[in-house]
C-alpha cells in the first residue's frame, strides 16, 4: 500500500468506470429484482404486493428450496472446494524445476474449462451410464456390481462432483501458477540453507505467501459454486427432471431458474436469488475468517 499517494483524485478516477457502469446497468436490474421479490409476480406482473411473503414461503413452506441449498452446499464442498487441495499441489509440481513440458501440462489441465457443455453432457453420459458406461465397466472388471450413477441420489452427487473437479481444477491451477511467480526465490534459498525438505519448504514459504490468493480463489469458488446451474441441469436431464432422483442434483440456482422460467414465478425466483446472495456473503465471511487465521493470512 502506497501511503504517500492518494491525496489526489486519481484513484477515484481509476475506479470510476466500474461505478459509472454499475449506476447505469446494475442499479436498475437489481432494484427491479428486489421489487419483483416483494410481489406475487408472474411472467408478467406485478400482480399483488405481498411484502416478504415470497421469502417466508421459500424458507418455510416450499418443499424444494432448503434441500436445494443443502445439495448446493454438498457440491460446494465436494466439487468446488475439494479441488483446491488438488489444484494447489498440482500447480507447485508443474511449476517445479524438474518438470519438463510445462506448457503441455498447463494446457492439458486447462482444456476441460474450455470444453463446451453439450460435449461434456455427451461424454459424461457415456462415462456414467448404468449399463454401458465406462465407469461401471471398470468396476465390473473388479467384480463390483454396476452402480446406477444418474438414477441414485448419492451417485448423482458423485458424478456432479467429478465433473466440477474435472472442469475447474485447471482453472484454479492456473491462478496458483500465476501467483507462484511472485514469490521471491531468495526466500527458498534461505530455508534450503537450513536444509528444509520440499514439503516443509512449501509449508513454510509457499503456503503463507499464497494465502491471499487462496482466499481469492476460494472466494470465487464459493461465489461460482453457490450459483452452479449448467452442469446439474445438463447431466440430470433438464427442467423436467428437477435434478434427478431425490432431487439430488437440484441446486439452489437450478431451482431459481426452474421457478422463474419453468414455473413462471418471477417474484418467488427473485426472493430465491436474494437468499442465495445472503448465503454467499455469509460463506465468504467464513472464508475470510478462516484464511485470516492461517499463517500468512490477514494482511
Amino acid at each position: 500500500m502506497r501511503v504517500s499517494r492518494g491525496k489526489g483524485r486519481m484513484p477515484y478516477l481509476f475506479i470510476a468506470p466500474f461505478f459509472a457502469l454499475f449506476a447505469v446497468f446494475g442499479v436498475f436490474p437489481i432494484g427491479y429484482s428486489v421489487l419483483m421479490s416483494l410481489f406475487n409476480w408472474k411472467m408478467s406482473g406485478p400482480v399483488e404486493f405481498i411484502g416478504l411473503g415470497n421469502y417466508v414461503n421459500v424458507l418455510t413452506v416450499d418443499p424444494f428450496f432448503l434441500s436445494a441449498v443443502l445439495n448446493t452446499l454438498v457440491l460446494l464442498l465436494t466439487g468446488s472446494l475439494l479441488q483446491h487441495f488438488i489444484a494447489l499441489p498440482l500447480a507447485i509440481v508443474v511449476n517445479s524445476r524438474f518438470v519438463k513440458g510445462k506448457e503441455f501440462f498447463k494446457t492439458a489441465y486447462f482444456l476441460p474449462y474450455i470444453t463446451s457443455t453439450v460435449a461434456v453432457a455427451i461424454i459424461f453420459a457415456n462415462l456414467f451410464d448404468t449399463n454401458y458406461g465406462l465407469f461401471n465397466w471398470a468396476l465390473g472388471a473388479f467384480g463390483i456390481e454396476p452402480v446406477a450413477w444418474l438414477a441414485d441420489p448419492v451417485g448423482i452427487k458423485v458424478a456432479l462432483s467429478a465433473v466440477l473437479n474435472w472442469k475447474y481444477v485447471g482453472w484454479n491451477m492456473v491462478i496458483y501458477l500465476a501467483a507462484l511467480q511472485s514469490i521471491p526465490a531468495e526466500l527458498y534459498e534461505a530455508v534450503e540453507m537450513d536444509g528444509a525438505g520440499t514439503i516443509r519448504k512449501h509449508l513454510a514459504i509457499t503456503l503463507p505467501h499464497l494465502m491471499p490468493v487462496v482466499f481469492f480463489a476460494v472466494s470465487l469458488s464459493i461465489i461460482g459454486g453457490m450459483q452452479i446451474f449448467e452442469e446439474p441441469f445438463v447431466l440430470t436431464g433438464g427442467y423436467e427432471n428437477m435434478g434427478g432422483e431425490g432431487n439430488s442434483g437440484l441446486t439452489a440456482a437450478f431451482y431459481l431458474m426452474f421457478t422463474a422460467f419453468k414455473a413462471g414465478r418471477l417474484g418467488k425466483a427473485s426472493a430465491i436469488a436474494w437468499i442465495i446472495f445472503v448465503v454467499i456473503l455469509l460463506l465468504n465471511r467464513v472464508n475470510r475468517l478462516a484464511t485470516d487465521r492461517m499463517p500468512g493470512g490477514g494482511d
Binding site: K42, A151, Y239, E240, N241, M242, E245, G246, N247, F258, K262, A263, G264
Partner: peptide, 17 residues
C-alpha cells in the same frame, strides 16, 4: 393451466422413484 409444468416435474419424480 399455469401450474402444469411444475406439477409435471413433481409427478415425473414420483414416477421415476
Amino acid at each position: 393451466s399455469e401450474y402444469d409444468n411444475v406439477v409435471l416435474s413433481i409427478w415425473m419424480r414420483a414416477v421415476s422413484t
